[in-house]
Nucleic acid binder design. Sequence first.
DNA 1: GTCATGAGTTCCTTCTATCG
DNA 2: CGATAGAAGGAACTCATGAC
Length: 475
Amino acid sequence: MGERKIFAGPRLKRTRQKLNITQAQMARDLGISPSYLNLVESNQRPLTAQVLLKLAETYDLDLRELSGDREERLASELKEVLSDPVFRTPIPSSGEILEVASSSPKVSTALLHLYKTYQREIGHNDPLNESLSERNRRLPDEKNRFPIEEVRDYFHARHNFIEELDQHAENLYDTLNQTDNLFTSLRNHLSEKHGIRISVLPIHAMPDTQRRYDHHNKRLFLSELLPLPSRIFQIGVLIAQQEQKDVMSRLTKEAGFNTEDAQQLCQIGLANYFAGALMMPYSAFIESARSLRYDISILSGRFGTSIEQVAHRLTTLQRKNNRGVPFFLLRLDNAGNISKRFSADGFHFAKFGGTCPKWRVHDAFATPGQIIVQPVQMPDGTSYLTLSRTVETVSGPHPETPRKLAISLGCEIGYADQVVYGDGLQLDTSSILTPIGVTCRMCERHNCTSRAFPPMTQPLKIDANLKKLSAFEFR
DNA sequence: GTCATGAGTTCCTTCTATCG
DNA sequence: CGATAGAAGGAACTCATGAC
């Protein structure tokens, strides 16, 4: 694999402007000449490893701030928009679009806004045009974004990691009067500290809900249908609501959401986050995850959690100076509807549609409980290692059939050597590279053809440079 | 196989011009 | 006058090639 250079000029410039310093000042700090810094900022020179390290050291920068995550997402949206025949020009190349998104993010955003406005007008004037009206509904402008999108972006911007809650959860876990199981410890904690009692009710007493909290009588009712990990999780959520109220309110307030719905959704998301962090305390969990090489089955057994809870937790391991492999997670049903998506490292999910049918997450439904490993590739050439399997859902009384769900956990292929699922990975012509989270319709619109890996006889080799630097823009 | 050589590349500096 | 941009060039390094 040839070495690729990092050109992150516009982003470096924005970082410098954010720090409110001049080129001369930054050049002094980095030990290079102002002119050289200027060349780097104008993408006429690549960012060398030495300068990168100095940047991180001098300004205590998280180097991911220089990564192209935001630009890639913007480029991805731009590509979708520019594929509209209304532009009557050939679709620009991915590289060209990314360059525009990187160097002129505001112009790109303005173009997106203009297109959305145009879509609304078209939809309004042509009520028979169902697809455009549908599209219009899915393209709210910045102020009218769906609450769920606002909240999703909130977590996305934080790499799905909330330090404060994570730390509080870990502290609480350490102070718990540990018994053999976490359920008992947490039940005792709730009872002793908040006077809240827990009752597990039979199905006939609580047929429609799995959890209900009676604020007046201080009682948490859990359905007998809930498996133990879910019961513990629900207690964790209640503890978050009792003990982390101020923190969660402040975080939500700082986020500046447009609607009350978004604020409420965020509160729920934060409480869920706390519960997961309480069940799998950061330090202990990441230590186990590393030593087990992210084997989700063993982690699930070790922490007494569900596979899905483990997978979700793996997307949050981004504590400064103690980061895990940045995973992304999707959960979908057998009809292809995505009901969950999280990413620790800016994986840009498609804005429209479901998933590509060639992605083997769909095969998981045919082999429940089995893990299907598959390397995939995005249209921009980035490769990922994904593992998919079905997850347990709460089953109702007969004849009700439980909802079928599958998750897919993934990370950049450069991390494959740290993950047990990357072992002995052989790529052959039957391993189809597939764009993730992109519908067939979008594939066609983007002229995005699936490709096959060239035949390989050797196990996958991991490029050390790619692993370290793949978060940045290459060319 | 080892060494010398030269072309090409990379990383950086210096100097100067331009702009507000 | 400070900040930024651009041209030119030096030092160090890489790599292909050929002589021994």
